[in-house]
Nucleic acid binder design. Sequence first.
DNA 1: CTTCTATATAGCTTCTGTGCTATATAAATT
DNA 2: AATTTATATAGCACAGAAGCTATATAGAAG
Lengths: 117, 117
Amino acid sequence: MRDLNTVFSALADPTRRAVLAQLASGEASVMELAASHKMSQPSFSRHIHVLEEAGLILRRVEGTRRPCRLAPNGLAALEQWMALMRRALEANYGRLDGVLAAMGAEAKGNDNDQDDT
Amino acid sequence: MRDLNTVFSALADPTRRAVLAQLASGEASVMELAASHKMSQPSFSRHIHVLEEAGLILRRVEGTRRPCRLAPNGLAALEQWMALMRRALEANYGRLDGVLAAMGAEAKGNDNDQDDT
DNA sequence: CTTCTATATAGCTTCTGTGCTATATAAATT
DNA sequence: AATTTATATAGCACAGAAGCTATATAGAAG
């Protein structure tokens, strides 16, 4: 759980998430992927490299092409982290119920309960 | 699903993920949270602000303190995105089986099958 | 009303990321 | 061998992140 930095920052870019989405429909070469993006080839190449470094995609060498596909376990660290957070959230909820019950009508100032989806 | 940028970049920082982990054990004020981090108060304050902006934490006003807690739906967008990716990955696997079968022994050059966990 | 405590804002510096153009490499094609 | 195609690397410019110190604000406490 040490490359969460890399994974999260890789995913923090819309171009890169778009590439992952494209790869969801299967393997594609860099040029094929780049076609949908209004960006220079070198810049795009960089994005691909970042995704690869983050372990989110895999590549083969096929002549002059480098077909990319989703890395099967690319999101493993992320999944693990999410699971932890989910559990924490649930625990918090459980506790919150208890706290609310215990507090009764004391209600000091804790009423800003936005839920911003 | 438009603030994924914000959420992912908020999570791309270890200090901020640590704060979320701290909040997993329940509400805490900024100073309480800051105690575990070797960083100036203003810098830390900034991190808290980023988490709030990303919708990952909620805060109350309690006198001079601003207790923070995990936002119940803070990870909703993330969960949704993950669900999509999971499905894509599964689909890819299914397809891969099919493709491999269909290709038979045609095997052009696609044999570097690293799985880098 | 002065002071202390908790937190925020301003302003600055430094580092990193992203994009671009120009160029390199390497396989495919002619 | 020369050219074209796919991709990578170098080097630069600019925008934004993250850290710091100094200062502001706003309740609490005296």
